[in-house]
Simulated scan of single mutants.
Amino acid sequence: MTTIGAYSPSLLNSASQGYAATAQPSLAQTLNEQETGSTPFSSTNVTLSDAAKNYLASMQDTAATTDTTPATLAANARKWFDAQYKSLGISSAMLDGQVAVDFSSQSRATLSAVASNASGLFSSDESKAAASEMQARFNNAMASHVVIARHTGDYASLYQAASDYLNQASDGEKATATWKAQSLAVATGLSAAKAGFGKAPDTGDANDPVAALLNTQGSGITKLGSDATTSQVASNARAMLDDQIGKARDKGSALVFNSLQSGQKVDFTNFDNRSLATIVLNPDSTFSNDEIYAAKQELNQRTRMSMYNALFPASNGKSDSSQTGALGLMQTYNGMSAEEKSVLGVTDATTNRVLASYKTQQSVQNTLASYL
């Protein structure tokens, strides 16, 4: 058994005053001193078993001798992938174009080894998944810097942060072709950003991770299901607009909401009608008057086209409204979200009138048919 002496308060004070600059002994040295009785202090003793002593010593030995070469990381990652596939019941790291394994426990150095296919142990999907995770981690690290750059126009600081991040890589990652290409692209971007304040530099380099981040759709933008709440739709629409605002700033411009303004015109292509109606309703008071006006104009235009096509489904306006047109109009109303109906003033009375008209047309046609 080995004992470790506990210092008394007075001795601790003396030690802190007289040996403040002295390096602390290692665990192995402390254990050895206790075993040989060489320590000059004596006090209450705490007893460690041989198993405990060996465990603590092994922790230092492991930390000092861990092999982090790409080959070793690759071998360990291969075992990890195989275990993941077995436990998850899958056979690939990518499913439906999405990463299907959780890389959160894997180090950046390991991801680099997989992405670069160290030792030729990984499939293309595994390397692609690892590369995607590396880009995601880079994006997360740069997120706050992107916000600052877009509000201040200081894109040089963003590229400097990217350079610092890349330089924190392991020696194994720095030896890869990907790291070298990204490092060169970031250095070029940093130089260009310093020379031109106010907008993101156009490096024209596909290896530029900053440009890839700035051109990526905002992380808050998702495709919502029909069960999403109005507040969730509003939050998503806000994120979609903010994404356009950010990209306009990257170009040294501003997002504008009517053709008379100078700047980058808002694009509602990816906004569904429910999102447009929710912007108009502005339930969480997060949209500006310009945004509300533009959304209302877009929604009105879409609704007019939808109703026209419902009334004249195949005739391109060359014939009168018919039974088929009335039915199409009812289907249009029924397909509207509650937010759309609220903005457009579509009520139960509206749909009831269309239904009554449809029934009248059907009755008249049936009556006329009986005389033929």
Rank of each mutant, 00 (worst) to 15 (best):
Q361V: 13
T324D: 03
G325A: 07
L299N: 05
P313R: 14
L299V: 05
D290S: 14
L327A: 11
F287E: 09
L299P: 05
L299A: 07
E298G: 01
N309C: 03
D284E: 13
V354M: 03
S275I: 03
F287H: 08
N289G: 11
R274S: 02
T367C: 00
T286V: 12
G345F: 00
K318S: 15
T278I: 12
T347Q: 09
L329P: 00
F287Y: 09
A310L: 02
A369P: 05
A294D: 07
N282D: 13
Q362S: 14
D320S: 13
V343S: 05
A294V: 10
E339T: 01
N352M: 12
D348Q: 15
T347P: 02
D348Y: 00
V354N: 03
R304I: 03
N282K: 06
T350Y: 10
A310R: 03
Q323E: 10
T332P: 03
F287W: 13
R353W: 09
F312E: 09
T303Q: 07
Q301T: 15
L281C: 09
M305V: 08
Q297M: 04
S288F: 10
E340N: 04
T360D: 14
L344N: 01
V364C: 00
S288Q: 08
D320H: 11
L368E: 08
Q365Y: 03
S357N: 12
Q297Y: 02
K296H: 12
Y358V: 02
A314C: 05
G317S: 04
R274N: 03
T332N: 14
N316C: 11
K318A: 15
G328R: 03
D320K: 13
A310P: 01
M330A: 02
Q362N: 15
A326T: 06
S315N: 14
S275P: 02
S363A: 15
K296R: 15
N273K: 03
Q361T: 13
G325S: 02
L329T: 09
S306W: 12
A338D: 13
E291Q: 15
T332A: 06
L355R: 13
R304T: 11
D290C: 09
I279F: 11
A295Y: 07
S275C: 05
T303Y: 08
S285L: 12
D348P: 04
A356L: 01
Y308W: 10
M305I: 06
Q301I: 00
L327P: 01
N300H: 04
R353Q: 11
N309K: 15
G328I: 00
G335F: 02
V280H: 12
Q362M: 13
Y358F: 11
D284N: 15
N309Y: 13
A310V: 01
S337M: 02
P313I: 07
N352I: 05
A314I: 08
A295R: 10
A326N: 04
A369G: 06
M307R: 10
A314W: 04
D284Y: 10
D320M: 10
S337A: 12
L329G: 05
A356T: 06
V343W: 07
V364M: 09
G345S: 06
N352F: 02
Y358R: 06
K318C: 02
S337R: 01
Q362F: 10
N309D: 12
N334M: 08
Q361A: 15
A295C: 08
L299E: 07
L276T: 07
T332Y: 14
L276Y: 05
L355S: 14
S321N: 12
V280R: 11
A349T: 11
T278M: 11
M330K: 09
Q365P: 00
T278R: 08
I279T: 13
